[in-house]
Simulated scan of single mutants.
Amino acid sequence: MAIKTSPAFHVLIPAAGSGTRTGLSLPKQYRKIGGKMILRHTVEKFIQIQGLKSIRVIIDPEHAAFYAEAMQGLDIAPPVFGAKTRKQSVYNGLSAFSPSEQEDMVLIHDAARLFVSQESIYALLDAMSASLAATLAMPIADTLVDADYNPFDRDKISAVQTPQAFKINLLKKAHDFFRNDDRFTDDAGLIAAIGENVALIPGTRDNFKITTNEDMQMAERLLLPQLETRTGFGYDVHAFDPAPADKIRLGGIDIPYEKKLLGHSDADVVLHALTDALLGTIGEGDIGQLFPPSDMQWKNADSEIFLKEAVRRVRAREGRIIHADITVIAEAPKIGPHREAMQVRIAGMLGIEPSRVGLKATTSEGLGFTGRKEGIVAQAVASVAFPAA
């Protein structure tokens, strides 16, 4: 596949604001979502773009510690200290370029627009082959009116986004011309004000700027990991021990009964089937492979050990257990009176709510070894969500 190429360019990211409109005590660009600070997400969007010469972030000196944490491990240019307004901060960033870089291209991008796509960045860079200035901009789909409900022609209006691309010397000229005029809210507006054309390159709806708490919540939803659900099935059978007993272990609890199940461990057929179901979701064999009956350390072992090890292995793969469904096939003992206690016990082992544990019991209508009361069968299905590969 051909490697995408683009002209050489620099990036300036104004990030000196306080971000008060989100209602947060921490400046929004340093708020963590998806495990990273917003500023880190934004910077990483540009690092892999072909042609990148440098990235400079414009920061408030008081935020230096936040910035250092956000950029840890990244090899980028030192930050530039900002000023009271965005316009003045960008001017400080432009002033950091050397005389030999004045003919280079610079992209100005909002720190809080972390969802800009690589395709949009490349489209903007491509447009600069025929323009001195260009910006991403979204066509308006909504009806626009003023306070008196006078409509605007939305076909002639666009919502301006970033990044915006310029020749450094041209943008510096526009800033110098309007040095003491703080009416401008973006850099493309300065270029248009000195009579130069600004090319509008179609942006995307995802490239929104986090401004309010609602925007923050939307960003958090968009960064939720993509999940896949896997289903595992387990089956186990144990015969009754001919020796007399007064209780039987099923589903992690002791039930009064005249027989117990025969096995190397405590023979909890329910937990064994569920253990295999969980192991099935990660492709790690079965309970007999992990806890072989030939190993004496598992003699009379509590089957909770087996189930919890399966849970540990699932969680080590970042799995989240969603649901378990178990069917016990036996003529006796009766499961109904103990169903709720078993659900609570199993849920505790799995780390989920009891309502996420299905437990049913049935008979084989007198047929087969279960019908002859020679043993018990358990079947289990486990549903687990994993990060998508």
Rank of each mutant, 00 (worst) to 15 (best):
residue 242 P to Q: 07
residue 242 P to F: 14
residue 242 P to N: 01
residue 242 P to H: 07
residue 243 A to C: 07
residue 244 P to I: 03
residue 244 P to C: 05
residue 244 P to R: 05
residue 246 D to V: 10
residue 246 D to M: 12
residue 247 K to G: 00
residue 247 K to H: 15
residue 247 K to V: 02
residue 248 I to Q: 12
residue 248 I to P: 06
residue 249 R to V: 14
residue 249 R to E: 04
residue 249 R to A: 13
residue 250 L to C: 02
residue 250 L to K: 00
residue 250 L to T: 04
residue 251 G to Q: 04
residue 252 G to C: 01
residue 252 G to E: 05
residue 252 G to R: 00
residue 252 G to M: 06
residue 253 I to W: 09
residue 253 I to G: 14
residue 253 I to L: 13
residue 254 D to N: 15
residue 254 D to C: 13
residue 255 I to N: 07
residue 255 I to C: 04
residue 255 I to H: 03
residue 255 I to V: 02
residue 256 P to Q: 11
residue 257 Y to R: 05
residue 258 E to V: 06
residue 258 E to R: 12
residue 259 K to M: 14
residue 260 K to Y: 02
residue 260 K to R: 13
residue 261 L to K: 06
residue 261 L to N: 09
residue 261 L to C: 03
residue 262 L to F: 05
residue 263 G to F: 04
residue 263 G to Q: 05
residue 263 G to R: 08
residue 264 H to P: 02
residue 264 H to R: 10
residue 264 H to S: 11
residue 265 S to T: 05
residue 265 S to C: 10
residue 266 D to M: 14
residue 266 D to G: 10
residue 266 D to Y: 00
residue 266 D to I: 08
residue 267 A to S: 03
residue 267 A to Q: 10
residue 268 D to W: 15
residue 269 V to W: 00
residue 270 V to Q: 01
residue 271 L to A: 04
residue 271 L to N: 10
residue 272 H to N: 11
residue 273 A to W: 04
residue 273 A to H: 03
residue 273 A to R: 07
residue 274 L to Y: 00
residue 274 L to I: 08
residue 274 L to F: 03
residue 274 L to A: 06
residue 275 T to S: 00
residue 275 T to P: 08
residue 276 D to V: 02
residue 276 D to F: 03
residue 276 D to K: 06
residue 277 A to Q: 05
residue 278 L to G: 11
residue 279 L to Y: 03
residue 279 L to S: 07
residue 279 L to V: 03
residue 279 L to T: 04
residue 280 G to L: 10
residue 280 G to P: 01
residue 280 G to T: 08
residue 280 G to W: 06
residue 281 T to E: 01
residue 281 T to W: 02
residue 281 T to M: 12
residue 282 I to H: 04
residue 282 I to V: 08
residue 283 G to P: 01
residue 284 E to H: 09
residue 284 E to G: 11
residue 286 D to C: 13
residue 286 D to W: 07
residue 286 D to H: 13
residue 286 D to M: 14
residue 287 I to L: 15
residue 287 I to R: 03
residue 287 I to W: 13
residue 289 Q to R: 09
residue 289 Q to M: 11
residue 289 Q to A: 12
residue 289 Q to G: 02
residue 289 Q to L: 10
residue 290 L to W: 13
residue 290 L to F: 09
residue 290 L to C: 09
residue 291 F to I: 00
residue 291 F to Q: 00
residue 291 F to C: 00
residue 291 F to S: 02
residue 295 D to E: 12
residue 296 M to N: 15
residue 297 Q to G: 00
residue 298 W to E: 10
residue 299 K to A: 04
residue 300 N to V: 15
residue 300 N to W: 09
residue 301 A to D: 06
residue 301 A to W: 01
residue 301 A to N: 08
residue 301 A to Y: 05
residue 301 A to M: 13
residue 302 D to Q: 13
residue 302 D to I: 12
residue 303 S to E: 12
residue 304 E to G: 14
residue 304 E to V: 15
